[in-house]
Design a protein around this nucleic acid. Structure first.
Lengths: 351, 351
DNA sequence: ACTCGCCCGGACAGCGCTTTCAGGCCGCGA
DNA sequence: TCGCGGCCTGAAAGCGCTGTCCGGGCGAGT
C-alpha cells in the first residue's frame, strides 16, 4: 500500500488510484463514475471527470478484463479462406454493417478466418481462452462443428443463415423462401411458362429454402412439380455452367431460369450463349444476391437482393443482447431469436 | 488465501493454481513451464504438462497481460475507408503476408480502419489505452499525424512506404526507383524514344521516387530532361485519363507511357483509345502494381510488380524485433531498419 | 568425507481494476 | 428533538498471472 502511492512512474499511464487522489475520492468511486453507475452524486461525478480529463486517464483494458471477467471484444468468424473473403462482396458488406453498429459501443471487433485446419485449431484455442465475449458466425455449413464448440464453451454466438429449420443458435437470415418466390413470380408475370432452377449447395439451408420457394411458387401458379427442371449447382460458376447444360438437354422448350446465385447465373449465361440462346428473348434469367456480377453481366441480370449490411447490424444487436443477458446469469425463455429479413427483387434487362 | 483453494467454480476454467496443485508443484513452477523457461527439470516439466493436458488448462490472457504488461496483439492500421481496403488487392495481399508470418506466433492481429475522422478518434483512444504491443501502418501520406502519435505514445511501429527520405520509423518498401527505371529501360529496349510519365500523388514518397527513376533512366540513356513529358496524376483512373490527354496535346510524337499505377494506366488507355492511338503499335504502355486491372486490360498491361505479400512478412518481422528489443529497455543504435525489396517487371502485350 | 557452488522449486508481492460490504451522513417522520 | 432509513462513499478483497528473491538440495572439487 505504501509502496504505490499516487506517483506516476516514468512514462507510466495514470491509474485509477491517481485519479482518485486527484479528485479527492476513493478508487471505488472513480470506478463507478467511469462505468456510469448511477449511485454517485453529481458533484462527485463532476470532480472525478475533471480529474480524468486533467490526467488524461485511460482505463487499463487488461486489468478491467481480469477483474470484470469480460473482454469487451467480439469476433467475426469467417469459416472460409481469406481469398474468398475478399472476393465476395457478401463479407465486406456484412463487415460494414457490423462495424457501423459497433462504433456506438466500446466493443472491439476481431476478424478471424478459419479456412484451413490450422486456422481452425488456432481459433479453437482462441475461443477456449475466452478471449472474446461473443462470436458472429457467417456462412456456416450444415456439418460445421464450430457452433457446437461455441455452445460447449458457453460463448454467446449468432449465426447468419441457420443450419436447419431446427437451428438453436440465434440467427439472422434473409427470406430465402420469399426471395425465391418473388423471382419465380416475376418470371411468371413476364409470361414465362417453363421455368428452371439451378440450386446452390444443398447442405446450405438457405439454398434448400430457395428450392422450396421455387417449387411452391410454381405449384401455386398451377404448374405441376417437374424435377427435371431442377439442376443442382454448387454456388460456383462452373457448376452453373454445367447445370445449365443439363437443363437445356432435358428441357429444349425451357424459357426461363432462376439461378440460386449470381455467380451460377454467370456460368449459366455462358452455357446459354454457347447453345445459341438469346437473353432475354429466348430465355429469361434471374439471379440471387444482386452482386456486382449482376450489374456487370451482359445483359445486366435481374437479381434478388439481400439486405446484407442490415443483416450484419441485426446480428450484432442480437449478439450484444445475448451477451448482456448472460451476464447476471438470467436464464431467458426460448423467445424468438431468429430474425428473417425481407429481400427485394432488382429488375434488370435479363428478364 | 484460504478463500480460493483448488476447487473449480462451476463452469470456471482451471487456473494456474489448480494445475500446480494437480502436478504437486508451486504456481511459479507451472508458470515457468508454460512460458518455456529452461530452469525446470524434465521430470517436473512432464508432470506439469500432464496436469495441463488433463485439466485442459488455458492461460487467462487478461491476467497475463496485466502482470506482464503486454497484450500479445498488434494492429494493422489502414488509414483508408473500408471500401478502398476491399477494392485494392494491395491490402489483402499485405494482410495475407502478415497473417502467414503471424501464424507462427501467439500474437494476434487486429485490423483497424482509420478512414473517417470518427474512426481516427477511436483509434487514438485505442492506442492511448495501449491495447496493442505494436502497429503496422500501411499507405500513409506525408502529412499524416499518426506516426507522430505513435512515437509520442512510444508504441513500436513499422511503416510501409516511408514518408520521406528522412523517415525515422522502421519501414519496408519496394524499390520504387528501381522499378520505375526497369519500366523505362524496358520501353527503351523496345525502341521507344518519346517516353512520357504519369505520376502518382506527389505527397506519396514512393510516387516521387518513381519520377526520379523515370528521369534518371532517360538521362542515362542519353535523353535530355523534358518536363513536358511528365504529367501529374493522383492514382485515380480519372486522373490518368486527364494526364494522358495533356501529354498527347503537348507531345504528338509520343510513343510510350509509363504510368505510376495500373489504375491510372487504365485511364490513360481510355484517353489513347479516344485519341485513336493503338496499343501497343502507336503507343506502348507500362503500369505499376501488377494488379488484376493489368491482367484484364485490353491488351493486357505490362506492369511493375511489387512483392506485397513479402513486404507484409518483412514488416511483421521488423515489428516483432522492435517489440522484443524494447522490452528490456535496451536502446539500440540507429541501425538499418529500412528494408527495400526488389520489384519485377511483368511483360505483357501492351509494350 | 566435507565444503562450496549451482540449480531448481516455492513464496510473495504486486499488475490496475471491479465489486461487495459496511459505515457515515443527511433527511424525514414521530 | 430523537430515531430510523437511504444514499453515497471509502475500504478491502480478490481476479489469475509474472517475475524476483530465497532457501534448500545435490553434485563436484579437494
Amino acid at each position: 500500500m505504501a509502496s504505490h502511492g499516487a506517483r506516476s512512474r516514468s512514462g507510466g499511464r495514470p491509474t485509477l488510484e491517481e485519479v482518485a487522489a486527484r479528485a479527492g475520492v476513493g478508487r471505488g468511486t472513480v470506478s463507478r463514475v467511469i462505468n456510469g453507475s448511477p449511485r454517485v452524486s453529481d458533484a462527485t461525478r463532476a470532480a472525478v471527470e475533471a480529474a480524468v480529463a486533467e490526467l488524461g486517464y485511460v482505463p487499463n483494458t487488461a486489468a478491467r478484463a481480469l477483474a470484470a471477467n469480460r473482454t469487451d471484444a467480439i469476433a467475426l468468424v469467417v469459416p472460409e479462406p481469406e481469398t474468398r473473403f475478399f472476393a465476395e462482396p457478401y463479407f465486406s458488406d456484412m463487415l460494414r454493417g457490423v462495424g457501423a453498429e459497433l462504433s456506438d459501443t466500446e466493443m472491439q471487433l476481431l476478424l478471424i478466418f478459419a479456412g484451413s485446419d490450422r486456422e481452425r485449431r488456432r481459433l479453437a484455442q482462441y475461443l477456449a481462452a475466452h478471449r472474446v465475449d461473443g462470436v458472429l458466425l457467417v456462412s456456416v455449413h450444415a456439418d460445421d462443428p464450430l457452433p457446437d464448440l461455441l455452445a460447449q464453451l458457453e460463448i454467446p454466438a449468432v449465426i447468419s443463415g441457420p443450419r436447419s429449420a431446427a437451428e438453436t443458435l440465434p440467427s439472422v437470415d434473409s427470406d430465402n423462401y420469399g426471395g425465391a418466390r418473388s423471382a419465380v413470380d416475376h418470371l411468371l408475370s413476364r409470361g414465362r411458362t417453363h421455368i428452371a432452377h439451378i440450386t446452390g449447395r444443398l447442405d446450405v439451408y438457405g439454398a434448400q429454402r430457395r428450392v422450396d420457394g421455387y417449387r411452391d411458387a410454381l405449384r401455386d401458379a398451377g404448374y405441376p412439380p417437374d424435377e427435371g427442371l431442377i439442376a443442382p449447382g454448387d454456388f460456383t460458376e462452373e457448376g452453373g455452367h454445367r447445370a445449365m447444360g443439363e437443363l437445356l438437354a432435358r428441357n429444349p422448350s425451357l424459357d426461363a431460369v432462376f439461378a440460386g446465385s449470381d455467380v451460377m447465373a454467370a456460368g449459366a449465361r455462358r452455357a446459354l450463349r454457347e447453345a445459341g440462346r438469346r437473353l432475354p428473348e429466348d430465355v429469361a434469367m434471374v439471379g440471387y444476391d444482386d452482386s456486382a456480377i449482376a450489374r456487370h453481366m451482359d445483359p445486366p441480370l435481374t437479381s434478388v437482393r439481400q439486405p446484407i449490411e442490415e443483416m450484419g447490424r441485426r446480428m450484432l444487436d442480437l449478439l450484444l443482447t445475448e451477451i448482456a443477458d448472460r451476464r447476471p446469469a438470467v436464464s431467458r425463455g426460448l423467445e424468438r431469436r431468429q430474425v428473417v429479413l425481407a429481400t427485394e427483387l432488382v429488375g434488370r434487362s435479363s428478364s
